[in-house]
Design a protein around this nucleic acid. Structure first.
Lengths: 149, 149
DNA sequence: TATTGTTATACTCTATAACTATA
DNA sequence: TATAGTTATAGAGTATAACAATA
């Protein structure tokens, strides 16, 4: 039985994206654990590299998380030497987060880990299918306010 | 800067699936709130409808969650009259969960909600692109042990 | 003694609210 | 008085461990 329209829950994009997304995030987490990082830490590093945001509050808005969470993410990244906190001289309430060279390297390492997961995931797909998937997901991400350059 | 291979984190499938999946799950949650359900409740209903699992322990394994979580999901669904718990006469330790007619209707309603989210999500895509996406995600889901009939 | 389901407890993640310092 | 960041607290979601009934 599958609703009176013949649609099954498991064939919806909502379900497939939700479950596959959860699996990939969990795998990514497992890879990052060795560096003492979680996916959101890496998301923050990527945001800094993109130059989109500077202050912690801007970052919180772009990441769709509470400002207090940015504090703890930044604390950890600072601890690892991946970011530096710098007071804005124009407005001393603002903290500017700057990516260090170490931070760039860390981001590159984590990005490589994500790319490996991609390879694993798309093992049986043709290169064309894989690229088409990447592109359509990028389109959907952008349309939904998610970073996808 | 983007790693020395020119790959950006935000262009990986891991990142795109993870973020889009989180967004879709959150939207689905919001729709389900009116029924007092969470996505896992609906996943359990769908599993019962598929006839794949019967006992709570089987369900826990297939859903990749702890058995204790199945207890509370089933408690809630029983409360709503969506499932019935029946002792297996062959092995009285086992509880068999049976989908009621109300449960089928509830699942159909929730599936329709997911389908609406799909429509919303793929608004700018061609029907061919949308169908290709659904198919490739189904392939990936099956290859990764996720339900996708 | 091993297994199914349940209950009790603890842990992870994240948000909300209270607070500090600058403006 | 309002805002950026921080700290303290609380809530959601889920797992682990202890327990009861049955095998």
């Amino acid at each position: 039985m599958e609703g009176m329209n013949g649609v099954k829950l498991t064939s919806t994009l909502a379900f497939r994206l939700g479950t596959l997304g959860a699996v990939m995030t969990e795998r990514f987490s497992a890879r990052l654990a060795a560096h003492g990082l979680k996916p959101k830490h890496v998301g923050l590093l990527a945001l800094l590299e993109s130059g989109t945001a500077t202050s912690q509050l801007d970052i919180a808005k772009l990441m769709n998380v509470a400002p207090s969470l940015v504090v703890s993410l930044a604390d950890r990244l600072e601890e690892l030497g991946a970011v530096r906190r710098e007071r804005d001289p124009m407005d001393r309430r603002r903290q500017t987060l700057a990516l260090t060279e170490e931070g760039r390297e860390l981001l590159a390492t984590c990005t490589a880990a994500a790319a490996e997961l991609d390879t694993e995931l798309t093992d049986g797909l043709s290169p064309e299918e894989t690229e088409a998937l990447r592109i359509v997901l990028g389109t959907l991400a952008r349309r939904n306010g998610l970073p996808a350059d």
